[in-house]
Amino acid sequence: VKKMAKAIMADPNKADEVYKKWADKGYTLTQMSNFLKSKTAGKYDRVYNGYVIHLD
Score class of each variant (00 low, 15 high):
23 A>N: 07
51 Y>P: 02
33 S>W: 15
36 L>T: 00
14 K>V: 13
15 A>C: 05
35 F>M: 12
53 I>E: 14
54 H>D: 01
25 K>P: 01
6 K>D: 15
14 K>A: 09
5 A>K: 03
52 V>L: 10
23 A>W: 07
25 K>C: 15
25 K>F: 13
36 L>N: 00
55 L>P: 00
42 G>R: 06
15 A>N: 02
43 K>W: 08
20 K>D: 04
55 L>Q: 04
29 L>T: 10
42 G>M: 05
24 D>K: 11
3 K>C: 14
39 K>I: 08
49 N>A: 13
25 K>E: 13
46 R>E: 15
32 M>R: 00
39 K>P: 10
35 F>C: 08
40 T>H: 14
17 E>A: 11
31 Q>W: 05
55 L>F: 05
56 D>L: 15
10 A>I: 11
25 K>T: 11
13 N>Y: 10
15 A>Q: 07
13 N>E: 12
14 K>W: 06
2 K>V: 11
30 T>V: 13
38 S>M: 06
19 Y>L: 00
39 K>M: 08
29 L>S: 07
23 A>D: 05
11 D>H: 09
51 Y>A: 00
46 R>T: 14
48 Y>A: 02
31 Q>P: 01
19 Y>C: 05
49 N>K: 11
45 D>Y: 06
27 Y>T: 00
7 A>W: 13
15 A>M: 06
1 V>F: 08
47 V>C: 01
51 Y>S: 00
52 V>D: 03
36 L>G: 05
41 A>I: 13
28 T>H: 02
13 N>F: 09
51 Y>D: 00
56 D>R: 14
27 Y>Q: 00
53 I>A: 15
10 A>M: 13
18 V>G: 03
36 L>V: 01
33 S>V: 10
13 N>W: 11
56 D>G: 13
6 K>Q: 14
4 M>S: 10
27 Y>A: 01
51 Y>E: 01
7 A>K: 11
50 G>R: 02
34 N>T: 12
46 R>M: 15
47 V>H: 03
32 M>Q: 00
30 T>M: 12
28 T>D: 08
30 T>A: 12
18 V>H: 03
7 A>P: 04
23 A>H: 09
44 Y>A: 01
29 L>A: 12
9 M>Y: 05
47 V>N: 00
30 T>S: 13
28 T>R: 03
3 K>G: 08
21 K>N: 12
37 K>D: 09
24 D>I: 09
21 K>D: 14
10 A>R: 15
17 E>W: 12
25 K>N: 11
19 Y>Q: 00
36 L>S: 02
7 A>N: 07
26 G>C: 05
6 K>W: 11
3 K>Q: 13
38 S>R: 04
2 K>A: 03
7 A>R: 08
55 L>A: 02
13 N>P: 04
18 V>D: 00
43 K>A: 06
45 D>R: 07
1 V>E: 03
34 N>F: 14
6 K>L: 14
14 K>S: 08
28 T>K: 02
1 V>K: 04
2 K>R: 11
26 G>F: 04
41 A>P: 15
5 A>V: 04
44 Y>I: 03
6 K>T: 07
25 K>W: 15
29 L>H: 05
20 K>E: 07
13 N>C: 13
52 V>A: 14
53 I>W: 10
50 G>N: 03
42 G>H: 10
33 S>R: 14
23 A>R: 10
20 K>G: 09
38 S>A: 07
28 T>I: 03
55 L>D: 01
28 T>Y: 01
13 N>S: 15
23 A>T: 08
20 K>S: 10
50 G>Q: 07
11 D>F: 07
52 V>Q: 11
17 E>S: 10
17 E>C: 11
1 V>D: 03
49 N>H: 13
23 A>L: 08
12 P>K: 06
17 E>K: 08
17 E>M: 10
11 D>Q: 07
41 A>Q: 12
30 T>Y: 12
12 P>G: 07
36 L>Q: 01
48 Y>I: 14
3 K>I: 08
38 S>W: 05
8 I>Q: 01
36 L>H: 01
42 G>C: 07
3 K>M: 12
12 P>Q: 08
46 R>S: 15
12 P>R: 06
13 N>V: 08
4 M>R: 04
46 R>G: 14
53 I>P: 01
3 K>P: 05
45 D>W: 08
17 E>R: 08
46 R>C: 13
52 V>Y: 06
35 F>G: 02
19 Y>K: 01
21 K>G: 09
31 Q>H: 08
6 K>H: 11
10 A>V: 10
42 G>S: 06
50 G>A: 06
35 F>D: 04
29 L>G: 05
11 D>V: 05
46 R>D: 14
12 P>T: 06
14 K>G: 06
4 M>K: 06
21 K>F: 15
49 N>R: 12
40 T>R: 10
16 D>T: 15
52 V>S: 09
51 Y>Q: 01
54 H>T: 03
49 N>C: 13
22 W>P: 00
41 A>C: 11
11 D>I: 06
41 A>R: 10
2 K>E: 06
53 I>F: 10
35 F>I: 09
48 Y>L: 15
1 V>Q: 02
43 K>C: 09
7 A>E: 14
30 T>G: 11
34 N>R: 12
26 G>T: 03
53 I>N: 13
11 D>N: 11
32 M>W: 01
22 W>E: 00
49 N>Y: 14
47 V>D: 00
10 A>E: 12
38 S>F: 08
6 K>R: 13
32 M>K: 01
27 Y>S: 02
56 D>N: 15
33 S>K: 15
43 K>E: 12
22 W>K: 01
44 Y>P: 00
39 K>N: 12
35 F>Y: 10
37 K>Y: 11
16 D>W: 11
20 K>T: 10
8 I>M: 06
8 I>V: 11
29 L>I: 11
6 K>N: 13
35 F>H: 06
37 K>W: 10
5 A>Y: 03
39 K>D: 14
38 S>H: 08
51 Y>V: 02
47 V>I: 13
47 V>P: 01
1 V>Y: 04
47 V>R: 01
25 K>Y: 12
21 K>P: 00
39 K>V: 09
26 G>R: 05
23 A>S: 12
39 K>T: 14
27 Y>E: 00
9 M>E: 03
9 M>V: 06
39 K>Q: 11
27 Y>H: 03
25 K>S: 14
21 K>W: 10
17 E>G: 10
6 K>G: 08
17 E>L: 09
49 N>P: 04
14 K>P: 00
49 N>W: 15
31 Q>V: 07
46 R>L: 14
43 K>R: 08
7 A>Y: 09
39 K>R: 10
8 I>D: 03
15 A>G: 05
21 K>I: 15
15 A>L: 07
22 W>T: 00
51 Y>N: 00
51 Y>W: 02
47 V>S: 01
39 K>S: 14
45 D>K: 06
11 D>A: 06
45 D>H: 05
29 L>F: 09
24 D>E: 14
12 P>F: 10
42 G>T: 06
11 D>R: 04
30 T>Q: 15
17 E>N: 08
31 Q>K: 05
7 A>Q: 13
17 E>Q: 09
30 T>R: 10
48 Y>G: 00
26 G>L: 06
25 K>L: 15
9 M>G: 03
50 G>P: 01
53 I>Q: 14
7 A>G: 06
12 P>L: 07
39 K>F: 09
5 A>F: 05
42 G>F: 05
11 D>T: 05
37 K>C: 14
49 N>I: 12
8 I>E: 02
51 Y>M: 01
3 K>S: 11
41 A>N: 10
9 M>D: 02
6 K>S: 10
51 Y>I: 03
3 K>D: 12
16 D>I: 12
11 D>K: 05
14 K>L: 13
27 Y>C: 05
17 E>T: 10
8 I>C: 07
12 P>E: 08
4 M>A: 10
38 S>P: 04
47 V>G: 02
56 D>T: 15
55 L>V: 04
17 E>P: 04
42 G>W: 05
43 K>I: 09
42 G>Q: 05
41 A>K: 14
51 Y>T: 01
12 P>D: 04
22 W>Y: 02
5 A>G: 03
1 V>I: 13
